[in-house]
Measured scan of single mutants.
Amino acid sequence: KRPMNAFMVWAKDERRKILQAFPDMHNSNISKILGSRWKAMTNLEKQPYYEEQARLSKQHLEKYPDYK
């Protein structure tokens, strides 16, 4: 399994927040909201998630050095 990218790292927690506020919302609508919010964020706001992506990628490479 591939490591999560920056968007997926961010969306994991954001999806939970949306589901808590709107428990009956369909997944497709949640995904649209998440995509819009991510696009509206600045690079500075996204930076911590890119850093986490890099950490996860490094960890994955160490754990699975032959992964293609």
Rank of each mutant, 00 (worst) to 15 (best):
K1L: 08
K1N: 15
R2L: 11
R2N: 15
M4F: 03
N5E: 13
A6W: 00
F7P: 01
F7H: 01
F7K: 04
F7I: 00
F7R: 03
M8S: 14
M8G: 13
M8Y: 03
M8D: 15
W10L: 01
K12G: 07
K12C: 04
E14T: 10
E14I: 13
E14K: 12
R15P: 00
R15F: 06
R15H: 02
K17E: 03
K17D: 01
K17T: 06
K17P: 00
I18C: 01
I18M: 09
L19K: 13
L19W: 03
Q20I: 10
Q20E: 12
Q20V: 04
Q20A: 11
Q20M: 08
F22S: 14
P23G: 01
P23R: 06
P23C: 00
D24C: 05
D24M: 06
M25Q: 03
M25S: 06
M25C: 03
M25Y: 03
N27D: 14
N27Y: 09
S28E: 13
S28N: 12
S28Q: 11
S28K: 10
N29K: 15
N29S: 12
N29G: 10
N29A: 15
N29P: 03
N29L: 13
I30W: 01
S31F: 07
K32Q: 07
K32M: 08
I33Q: 04
L34V: 01
L34S: 05
G35H: 13
G35S: 15
G35E: 10
S36H: 10
S36E: 14
S36L: 09
R37E: 05
W38R: 00
W38K: 03
W38M: 00
W38V: 00
M41E: 00
M41Q: 00
N43H: 14
N43D: 09
L44Y: 07
E45T: 03
E45K: 03
K46R: 08
K46C: 01
Q47K: 12
Q47E: 07
Q47D: 03
P48L: 04
P48M: 05
Y49K: 04
Y49T: 04
Y49E: 02
Y49N: 04
Y49L: 04
Y50E: 09
Y50Q: 04
Y50D: 07
Y50F: 10
E51Y: 04
E51K: 04
E51D: 02
E51M: 02
E52V: 06
Q53Y: 14
Q53N: 07
A54Y: 04
A54I: 13
A54P: 02
R55W: 06
R55P: 04
R55H: 10
R55C: 05
L56M: 13
L56F: 08
L56N: 10
L56G: 08
K58I: 10
Q59R: 09
Q59V: 10
H60Q: 09
K63G: 05
Y64Q: 12
P65D: 11
D66N: 09
Y67Q: 15
K68W: 02
